[in-house]
Design a protein around this nucleic acid. Structure first.
Length: 558
RNA sequence: GGCGAGGUAGCUCAGUCGGUUAGAGCACUGGCUUCAUAAGCCAGGGGUCGCGGGUUCAAGUCCCGCCCUCGCUACCA
């Protein structure tokens, strides 16, 4: 049995989850996991929050909260959003709350050090006495020593674009409190990415098949990959392992170092809860596992270069990612979703108003797979009314209501003399039938969503060709055979819908008279004449209701 | 400044290794149908593929230059 670890980027616990995140890394992961599970694969889906880092401590202090509860709040927001959209993981944890996280992160550090992939360096950095902390480049500002403009940041001058060395500012200011920081000497550890690259991972990256939008980015990056500091002077985070000695006091692992390790530590946490504490190794240290990271494009360097380097550098046989289906960005009104910039809305409220499945489907059908794409409420409503209500929902009601009125609300009989004609018609002559799962496995979610609708169109064409309302009078047996065929088709339609629209799929499944869960059904693939039928004539059907009631477009707001 | 992505129909987007008349959905127009949620089916109009050069028998696709948009630039899909 194939086994796959599906991860979604750990969300930085510093703000709410918005549609950009969801369309980028969470919904595709969920659809992918649901699809693989129906296909019979074993899947482990992992996500959570990335809780450490300076930005969080600063925001928490501004909000007057302690770090842990600040982080817990955003982690809670994430869980609530997942629930609202029915996005499911085997575990959603957080790097500050997962009991296995700190130890495993330190173990990574230690193993990398043993294997000679860490470099210790002493450098000068600006330290704010008032705030009692070393200042990350971005938290320093001053007058640009090249163009003289004020308000240059510690990393770059926005006026002239010069790369700034904050130590060269004549008038450095702490961006947090405005006081003048001083230079202090500090020791940090660097991940020796050039060495890791040269000792195998470079070849692996070059030879690996990446999604096209990842390929160029990563190959370029590989050319001059720098050493990267993986420690920071602060208290909120994972402390360093004891073997670094006194130099490690008051320091923690840098967030981007410990964050991806969360995928593994969360798995450990889950397996311990399940009572099989060693089972995480079967996933993470097994050659048979397929590791798939769902992320947004901004995370490409970490997941395609840095994290694989770390995994390889431990020498502990960790699996390297098989695929990193990074999405581009999902925009709102031409700009990025941004909660701080006000260009966003409350996802939970939105879903309450427009519906889980409708939202999921629309996001799938507009996902930024190959280039940035655009979210629009008008289009969502249009999609809901045409593809969902018109094509799929109406197919179900036109068939099932007709049967309820004229065929006693049971599966009509297929008369043998019609079998061949019916099969040929619907399987060959009413349009192409596509397998959405095949497209999902290629990470083509947009086309997969289209395929679900296109398959419903096949049945709509079939209805129009046979016109059962006329046939009922001329040749009732043939009408029964046609309607039987349509019931069988709906039986497929519900399963095709399940990974994308779990609730509506279940609702349709029940309308067909099933009591089971559609998500537990094996994936159907595409039908072939030999064995695509499974319903028994005379089996009672459920009550047909509009699957997707049409929605009224809201009055344009002034 | 550096790096990356993008500019294709009114809108949102596909376009593989360069290869017939450049595709889809929505929107629009016309016809058919009346089972169904004013739903369905069929047909049609609509494009100088950002601009200018070049390579080629052949360029949306490759090369050079330019314009515009967006993102990242080390905390945020």
């Amino acid at each position: 049995m194939a086994r796959t670890i599906v991860t979604s980027a750990l969300l930085y616990a510093n703000g709410p989850l918005h549609f950009g995140h969801i369309a980028g890394a969470y919904l595709p992961a969920d659809v992918y996991a649901r699809t693989l599970r129906m296909c019979g694969d074993e899947v482990l889906a992992v996500s959570g929050s990335d809780d450490h880092g300076v930005a969080i401590t600063i925001s928490a202090e501004k909000a007057g909260e302690d770090y842990a509860s600040y982080v817990a709040r955003w982690n809670g927001n994430m869980r609530a959003t997942f629930d609202a959209l029915d996005i499911r993981y085997d575990i959603v944890s957080g790097t500050s709350t997962c009991p296995d996280h700190a130890d495993l992160s330190r173990e990574f550090f230690s193993r990398l050090m043993e294997n000679g992939y860490l470099v210790e360096r002493r450098t000068d950095q600006l330290f704010c006495v008032a705030d009692d902390m070393f200042l990350a480049d971005r938290y320093v500002e001053g007058t640009c020593y090249k163009c003289g403009s004020e308000g240059a940041r510690g990393d770059e001058c926005p006026s002239c674009g010069t790369w700034i060395d904050p130590l060269e500012f004549k008038d450095p200011r702490c961006k947090i409190c405005g006081s003048t920081p001083e230079a202090r000497s500090t020791t940090h550890w660097y991940l020796d990415l050039p060495k890791l690259r040269d000792e195998k991972i470079g070849d692996w990256i070059r030879d690996h098949e990446w999604k096209t939008n990842v390929e160029k980015f990563i190959q370029n990056l590989l050319e001059d990959v720098p050493e990267r500091a993986i420690t920071r002077d602060m208290s909120w985070g994972v402390s360093l392992p004891p073997e670094v000695g006194e130099a490690g006091e008051g320091k923690v692992l840098y967030v981007w170092f410990d964050a991806p390790i969360g995928y593994i530590s969360f798995t450990k946490e889950l397996m311990r809860e399940r009572g099989t504490p060693e089972a995480w190794k079967d996933w993470w240290q097994s050659d048979d596992t397929q590791l798939v990271h769902f992320i947004g494009k901004d995370n490409i360097p970490f997941h395609c270069l840095v994290f694989p380097s770390m995994l390889h550098g431990t020498g502990d046989g960790y699996v390297l990612p098989a695929a990193v289906p990074a999405n581009e960005f999902y925009n709102l009104k031409g700009g990025k979703f941004s909660t701080s910039g006000g260009n966003a809305f409350d996802v939970v409220e939105f879903v309450k108003e427009w519906g889980v499945d409708t939202t999921r489907f629309y996001l799938c059908s507009t996902m930024p797979e190959t280039s940035d794409s655009e979210f629009s409420l008008e289009q969502l409503i249009q999609t809901a009314n045409t593809a969902l209500a018109g094509t799929i929902g109406n197919l179900a009601t036109r068939v099932l209501k007709f049967i309820a009125k004229n065929f006693d609300a049971v599966v009509p009989q297929l008369h043998e003399q019609h079998r061949e004609e019916m099969d040929r018609l619907i399987l060959e002559e009413c349009g192409p039938i596509e397998d959405p799962a095949a497209l999902v496995k290629e990470f083509r979610f947009r086309r997969a969503a289209e395929a679900v609708v296109a398959n419903a169109t096949v049945a709509n064409v079939f209805v129009d060709r046979l016109a059962p309302w006329a046939l009922r009078k001329e040749d009732p047996e043939k009408a029964a055979s046609a309607l039987n065929t349509l019931c069988e088709w709906l039986n497929w339609q519900a399963r095709w819908m399940a990974p994308f629209m779990p609730h509506k799929a279940q609702q349709l499944w029940e309308m067909l008279g099933h009591a089971s869960a559609v998500a537990d059904q094996p994936w159907p693939g595409t039908p072939s004449a030999e064995d695509w039928r499974s319903l028994s004539a005379g089996a009672p059907l459920g009550t047909p209701e509009a699957l997707f009631p049409r929605i009224q477009a809201p009055e344009p707001k002034a």
